[in-house]
């Protein structure tokens, strides 16, 4: 019996890492040297066992200066990654600051991308602040609160895939905070209506 459970903002697991996991770990090892991040969306369900792959791994990051972003960009290039466009300044100004995602992928693996966005909305900043530290094998990653994922997927996204992702999390996690899910639903629905 191995239900996942978050205790005091942390969770521990030991799993066979997929190539997708290795990609995520490698890219976030670089990113985390420059800015705080939180993993969101489909990869959250996948890391915790969902039987599907993905082409996009989404993260929110904290506000970042152009200088820091350029340092991150150069560090990623050195490690063999590339981006939407080959210009760090344009990426920062025309993508990141314009609420578009900066995509990062390995030169030989363009179909699996890390999609980076700045947390702008209240709910996004809150997810970043309430991120869960997940220890796997020898390292750790920061994930969104599971309750937020369930709330967002069931109340905003609502595609078949998203509803399945949410259901998977509801089954494999124990002691999920139902009141917190309802609260997140209220927050994200209000943000959605205000847009």
């Amino acid at each position: 019996m191995v239900e996942f459970e978050v205790v005091n903002g942390e969770l521990r697991t030991k799993k066979n890492l997929t190539q997708l996991d290795v990609f995520v770990i490698d890219t976030l090892t670089i990113l985390s040297r420059f800015v705080d991040y939180v993993l969101i969306s489909g990869y959250v369900s996948i890391f915790f066992g969902r039987a599907r792959g993905t082409e996009d791994v989404d993260v929110f990051i904290d506000e970042i200066s152009e200088e820091k972003f350029k340092e991150f960009y150069n560090a990623a290039l050195e490690k063999g990654y590339e981006f939407n466009i080959d210009n760090a300044e344009e990426l920062y100004k025309d993508y990141l600051q314009d609420n578009l995602s900066v995509n990062m992928w390995g030169k030989n693996l363009p179909l699996v991308r890390l999609e980076i966005k700045i947390a702008k909305k209240y709910s996004q900043k809150r997810v970043l602040n309430e991120r869960v530290k997940v220890f796997y094998n020898g390292g750790f990653l920061y994930f969104s609160p599971i309750e937020y994922q369930i709330a967002y997927k069931k109340s905003i996204l609502k595609s078949e895939k998203d509803l399945e992702d949410a259901r998977h999390l509801e089954v494999v996690f124990k002691n999920l905070d139902k009141e917190k899910i309802e609260e997140y639903v209220g927050v994200v629905l209000k943000e959605f209506e205000d847009e």
Partner: peptide, 14 residues
């Protein structure tokens, strides 16, 4: 999806 999730829940991570 539910069947697989139950499998994940009821088997070791490995």
């Amino acid at each position: 999806v539910e069947k697989w999730a139950e499998f994940v829940k009821n088997n070791p991570d490995e």
